[in-house]
């Protein structure tokens, strides 16, 4: 059972780790315009992460600010879903991750905007507009790649197959949370169903549903991501930047 602190921390970590992964594309995107778009989305995620982690720190009441939470926790203390920590892979894998994440974050932030907690409601109201753009962008690429060339179709289907199992964790029931993720599943399924159909892609099936991120049991990838992200901050304890 998660209190508001764990819930807020989980969403903040989703956004932070997603930002870190998206920013890895900078200077590497297939088009200059796409370099700018991916940086935009990374900046949105980073902005949401900062608001959420700052608020999580206040809820905890132990004096931890956004940087203490981002830079001074180990992977076992991170609460992000596994989906966001998966490596970027090729552009199709990144778009599959982005599309599924946005299809989850949009209804999540929309619901949050109407929740009783004023701070979370304000964050949700701001972030949902950004998520709507992320979803547009991700969905458009899923369609372009799915219904583009033979090669792009093959890559996009394989990316969807690879990433899909990690979406289930996003909707694990948590009735005590400000927004119960289980209630977001129908909206997610609607979006994903129609976009994949238009993209001429097959929705994967199968029982495998890896999880553990919300309790701090991650994939092997997160520790490396954090090692890189935290190295400089940790090398200078107590320094201001």
């Amino acid at each position: 059972m998660n209190g508001p602190f764990d819930f807020t921390l989980g969403l903040g970590d989703d956004a932070l780790v997603a930002a870190q992964r998206l920013a890895e594309w900078t200077t590497r995107a297939p088009e200059m315009e796409e370099d700018i778009a991916l940086a935009n989305i990374a900046l949105d995620q980073l902005g949401a992460a900062r608001l959420l982690l700052t608020y999580a720190g206040e809820l905890e009441g132990a004096g931890r600010d956004e940087d203490a939470l981002a830079y001074l926790r180990d992977d076992r203390e991170f609460r992000n879903a596994l989906l966001v920590e998966l490596p970027n892979g090729d552009f199709a894998v990144t778009m599959a991750k982005l599309f599924f994440l946005a299809a989850y974050q949009l209804p999540l932030y929309s619901a949050l905007a109407g929740c009783a907690d004023e701070r979370l409601a304000a964050i949700g109201a701001k972030a949902r507009k950004e998520s709507a753009y992320h979803l547009d962008h991700g969905a458009l690429w899923v369609k372009r790649l799915g219904d583009g060339t033979e090669e792009s179709h093959r890559r996009m289907q394989s990316a969807v197959d690879e990433v899909w199992p990690y979406t289930h964790e996003l909707f694990a029931a948590d009735p005590a949370a400000p927004v119960d993720p289980a209630t977001l599943r129908p909206a997610f399924d609607d979006t994903v169903g129609s976009v994949l159909a238009e993209a001429t892609l097959t929705k994967p099936e199968g029982p495998w549903a890896p999880a553990g991120g919300r309790t701090g049991v991650h994939t092997e990838h997160l520790s490396y991501l954090l090692a890189e992200m935290q190295v400089l901050h940790r090398a200078h304890p107590g320094a201001r930047w």
């Binding site: 920013a23 370099d35 700018i36 940086a39 940087d67 830079y71 890189e228 930047w241």
Partner: peptide
């Protein structure tokens, strides 16, 4: 960008590098 020592600096740097791409275009 990946190692910026605070989240604020990370955001500023990411936005700056994005600006350079915009200048290029």
């Amino acid at each position: 960008i990946s190692r910026a020592p605070s989240l604020k600096r990370k955001a500023i740097l990411l936005a700056k590098v994005q600006d350079e791409a915009g200048h290029g275009l």
